[in-house]
Amino acid sequence: MSGAEFVPLSLVPMLIGICVAVACALPGNFLVLRKQALIGDAISHVILPGIVVAFLLTGAVTTWPMLFGAAGAAVVAVVVIEAVVRLGRIEPGAAMGVIFTAMFAAGVLLLEQSDTSSVHLDVEHALYGNLESLIWLDAVGWSSLFDRQALAGLPVELPRMAATLLFVAAFIALFWRPLKISTFDEGFARTVGIRTGPLGFALVIVAAIAAVAAFDAVGSIIVIAMFICPPAAARMMTNRLEHQLLWSAVFAVVSAVAGYTLAAFGPLWLGLSASVSAAGMIATLSGIILALAAMFGPHRRRGAG
């Protein structure tokens, strides 16, 4: 494929896919190690009610109110789940199940009740996004990367997602040591003065920010998949946290690139005309990588090797 086709049609979705995958996989490592993997699941389900409420309040489908609505819903969900766990003495899994299904149901109901026929706002979009539509119309080929005028027409999702990735990476780099100690041995972390409660909350909020920034581009499924699959596969490749994060980033990039390529061109190779969902394919590929790591990874078993 020539640059004239690749750059306008495929480069941007692929880059966005990579940014989403890595931005979710990095905090996902800590969530998986802390046995909070399903927080990602809960967050991605409450994004829908968040954007519906934002839409009802502003009356328009615009980016920033929706991102704030989604982020607000994620924070509300996390706080309410924690409150139900502590105050109701309910195990976290069940508390999550109660809260995110109820919030999701409220979102669907609000959507049905309000008149959204005139705008593009639907459940399917929130679930699987539309990575393929993020094309760069102003580009004519590789040379456009150096063309200021063409760059101005870049889909806004790309810089936004890149900034999110930078933010997530900076958070993890800055709080690397406290995160590591408190995940490994919370009691010890407290005795050296780490405030494990606020730190854990901050981690979940950072994960929520990554999820919210990502859902707009890719929908919430690949968000959940990227939170869990690359870190889980990476855990089976190494016994060092530093290496685990690197592995997870590599797996995330491979899933994004290969998933997008397969979705866009796979059907063509099979002689079919249309493409299939890139978000779904990226999630599927991350699952295949996890399956391979679970079968052949050098450190796949507990205790051994």
Partner: peptide, 29 residues
């Protein structure tokens, strides 16, 4: 701590665990 409070499956080597004792004096970065 009592050994029970620790995540034994955590990806970390023995020497890293000892280095954690130095984290408070090392600070964040």
């Amino acid at each position: 701590p009592q050994r029970a409070s620790v995540d034994w499956d955590f990806p970390t080597r023995v020497i890293d665990v000892v280095l954690m004792g130095l984290y408070p004096q090392l600070g964040l970065l």
